[in-house]
Every structure is written in C-alpha cells, then in structure tokens.
Design a protein around this nucleic acid. Structure first.
Lengths: 272, 272
DNA sequence: TTCGAAGTTCCATTATTTGAAACTTGGTTT
DNA sequence: AAACCAAGTTTCAAATAATGGAACTTCGAA
C-alpha cells in the first residue's frame, strides 16, 4: 500500500517514492532513518538520495547531516499552483464566499486517493498559504473528499476507495466501503454532502463538487464550522451560495486560457 | 546550459529535466510542444511524460490535451517550505521588520544558480503566498542574489557565476563576471549590498545575507523600495535593523529542532 | 587503541532504458 | 469518401544504466 504509485514506473517512480518517504517524516532525517523505512537496499537508497539532492529535490544540511524536501519543489509548486486551472482562478470567488458566509472556506483537489487542500480562506484572517495549502487529508471522512468521490466514474472511484484506510477517527466516521458508497449515492442525488464530525469532533462542513460541463471533477469547495457555533441545518442553508461559487469557479476554469505569452525562455536555469 | 543539473544523474535527472521543461512554459502544454524543446527522442519524452503524469508530478487535462505541473508538487512543496529551516522560522521576524520599516521585505534562498523567493511581506497587504513564494529571479542582478554570492566559498561561487546569463536589464546591470566579482568583494567587506536599479528601473533594495555561525549561507533578506519614493542612502539607514533581523533568523534557524514528533506515519498515501 | 554504527564506494550481474521505425488516431484537404 | 497529414502511441533488439552484496572508510564513543 502506497507502493501502488511506483509499481510500474521504473526508476523514476522509485526515486519519487524515496522523495515522498523523506517528506513523510515531516522533519529533516538522517540517511539511516530513510533506509530503515525504505524497501530498497542500502546502496540503492543511497544513490537515490544523492541524485535527488544533487537535483535540488532534497536539500542536505551538512551541519546536522539531515535531508529534507528541497527548495526546487517550491519553485515547481509555484508553477503548479499558478497553472492549475483551479486555485488561482478560484481565489477571488472563495474569498468573497468566505466573507459572505463568515466561515472558513476550503478549496481541495484529489491527489490520488487523498484530499489535497489547495487553498483556504479564514474570514478576517490574513492568508498564510504555504502553511495551509499543500496539506493533505483522508478522502473518505472529509466533506470535500466525499463530494469529489461522489462524482467520479466507476473505475476511478473503485481505485480511490481501494486506497482508503477507513481509520475510525470519531464515532461518526464512516468505517466501511459499504457505508461510504451509500453516502456517496446520497451526496450525488442531493448535489452536496456533509462532514458530520467524521474526522474531528465538533468540526462539521457542507461541501460541493466543482464539475466541468461534461461532469469531470475539478475539485471541491466546503464551508467549515463547529458544532459549538452552529449546526448542519444552518450550513445547509448556505448551499445555494456555495453552489453558485462552485459554478462560477467551474465556468472560469473551463473558459480560462493562458494569455498566450509569446514564450517561455528564462523560466528555467539562467539561459546562457 | 541548464543541462548541468542532469548531466550525471541518469534517468531520474532526465525525467526531472522534462518536468522543469514543462514548468518553464508557464502554461499548460501539448506533448508536441514539449517534444520540440526537449533534447530527447519522441518515445523517450513520451515515456517520461507518461511516468511523471502517472506519478502526479504532471497533471493532464484530457479536454485540452495539455500537461501542467501536478498537484503532487504542491503537497511536496508544503513539506519543503515547512521543513526548510528558514521560511517558517523567519516569518514572524520579517513580518515585524516589514511593519517596522514600512517597506516590502523579501526572503530568498539560492536554488542552484537562481534566486528563489521563499517569502515576501508587503506591509499592509494580506499575505498571498503561492503567488509570490516560489518565484525565481537572476542572482547576479538582485540584491539578495549578490548578498548570498558574496559569502559563498570559492568553488561554489565559481559554479554559480558560470551559470549567470549577464543579460543586461537596465543601464545599471552588472554585465560581466569581473564587475560582479568586484561588487561581491565590496559587499563582503561592508556586510550588505544594494540593488541599484540593476534588474528593474526604479526598483532599489538593500540586502543582507543570513549566515550560520560557521559562515554558511542560509539565505538573504532584503528591503525593497522605489527611487520614486526614497533613495539608497535612506535604505542604508535601515541596515542595522535588517542585520538584527537576519541575525535573529540565523539564530533561530540554527537552534531550531523539529519537535520530536513521536513519528510520521500517515503523512503518505492513506495508510491501510 | 579498539569497537561499532553510519555513511560511502566498488563492480560484475541484471534489469531498464533507449530510440528508430512502424502503427494508430482524428481531423482536414482534395 | 478517399487520401493525406500531423499528433500521439506502441514495439523490440541493442545499448545503457540500475542493482545490491560486500568491502571499505569515517567518526564518535568506550
């Protein structure tokens, strides 16, 4: 599990597996710690780490002899975020939505079987992106995750479901594929879904998918709150407004074309 | 030029070269466009793009048949940004500095031969990270770039200089290695450097390196303004305050240990 | 000085990548 | 509607690069 990604992607897949592994520690790590967790022999792990470091995908701290994800990733993510036809376009829409409803708004996409938050707006709070965007969460027990899954085509959904852990976080967590599939049908028929404290106690949300005209899932939008302050019925009232925002984002995302910048050189390493 | 990175890094290096290439277009691209620019034969480029896409390092838009940097990068960059011992630690310091001096503050690191901005604070403006952090610029004609280069050890400096383009942006741009080296000596003896409209007209800045106790370059800090509003002498007055901030960041970065989180599972693909 | 753990290198074997060419697909012209 | 063309995809033997067991080097601790 979690090997699935690299199974058939040769050397590159294996190298990226090591990269993910380093990132998964959430702190700088020594070579031996990586080795311990990796499925490859010493020399192989060593060579991958060397390569990744020389490539700037990992950074090495010589004082502490530790590796961490490298800053080249920050540059690449900048490109990813800007070019993802969702996040930059959605920004003004969700900003308005957050101010409008006075609650936290999340924008998420599916990264394989996980929910990846690509933007988050807390009304009245300055935006702190890197500390928020990039976070991942489980798909089967979050509003955005379920909203997206509800609109996937059968075989893609099967893949995603197969990778869910169904770890029980709270007494409301959907703990089985059957429970989840039933919920997804429900969401699909309503057009929106809830998180009923399934991931964290007191945290509830309404979530809607962002769909293209053809029905492809682009992402999901949610309004999050707490049972200490409000309830599901009150959140449900916001659905039309969220739906409008989701439609606006989908519309913009689909019609968006990158301004045909004459070209592109100089974005890479200095050219000459 | 720009090949240097992958020269000896085998398959993984080549794949990452393709990834960089796609990112360098700054817009979603078709396979044929990538092929045109790549140094590899059709089948090879094709296979790399397939692999990268299946890995989530690239995303594919089936409607438009285009590739763009994938969201997996956003997740990885999140880890990179949080773990880089600089950016998250520096945030409160530069935030205070920006408010204190009332001008824009940049925090940058070296990504190979380029300057990579990892944070930016504009006083009185909400923070919009992904749209700012991740941007790259030339090292030889920016304040932060020169400040960092001034403190590199000889051979590393030689490598970095060899990759500068010395493109002339303005009439003040340092256009040769000699001019640059002279300037670097100057900066090193002063402890700080300027950008004298070398990159963009009217844009000036003072920049200081962020150094470990042992003298290793962690990054650089700059206060940027415009000749329409102020001048170099006025910026120079801020040096002590910037210096203090740089010292504080270096101090925090060096003493910082990741809170020994018991462990780390579940950061990767769902664990089960 | 000895010991052991962590990190690094070696190199014959093995598996993967390579890329020219052939093929398929989908759209456009005659 | 047939022929054409460009873009994308697959194939397969040869060439190349990855593999990993084992030996070697550091470096800090006993």
């Amino acid at each position: 599990m979690s090997q699935d990604r690299s199974k058939s992607d040769g050397t590159v897949g294996k190298a990226l597996e090591i990269l993910d592994l380093v990132a998964s520690f959430r702190r700088p790590v020594r070579f031996s710690e990586v080795l311990e967790r990796a499925d490859f022999p010493k020399a192989t792990v060593y060579r991958f780490i060397q390569t990744l470091t020389s490539q700037g995908m990992l950074s090495y701290d010589p004082d502490r002899q530790t590796y961490a994800p490298g800053i080249r990733l920050v540059r690449l993510a900048h490109a990813a975020w800007q070019q993802s036809s969702l996040a930059p376009i959605a920004r003004p829409v969700i900003d308005k939505l957050a101010r409008d409803v006075g609650e936290t708004v999340h924008l998420a996409q599916l990264d394989h079987a996980q929910v990846l938050y690509v933007d988050k707006i807390v009304p009245g709070q300055p935006i702190e992106m890197y500390s928020q965007a990039g976070k991942v969460g489980p798909a089967y027990c979050t509003g955005v995750g379920k909203a997206m899954m509800a609109y996937l085509e059968a075989d893609h959904l099967a893949e995603v479901i197969a990778q869910q852990s169904f770890h029980v976080f709270t007494e409301h967590t959907l703990a089985s594929e059957e429970a989840l599939r039933a919920e997804l049908l429900d969401i699909r028929s309503n057009g929106y879904g809830f998180d009923r404290e399934e991931h964290e106690p007191h945290i509830i949300c309404v979530a809607l998918p962002i769909l293209t005209k053809r029905g492809r899932v682009l992402g999901a939008l949610s309004v999050t709150s707490s049972t200490l302050r409000t309830n599901l019925a009150a959140l449900e009232v916001l659905v039309p407004r969220i739906s409008e925002a989701a439609a606006a984002i989908a519309q913009d995302a689909e019609s968006w074309r990158f301004p045909d910048q004459p070209n592109t050189q100089s974005a890479n390493t200095a050219k000459g």
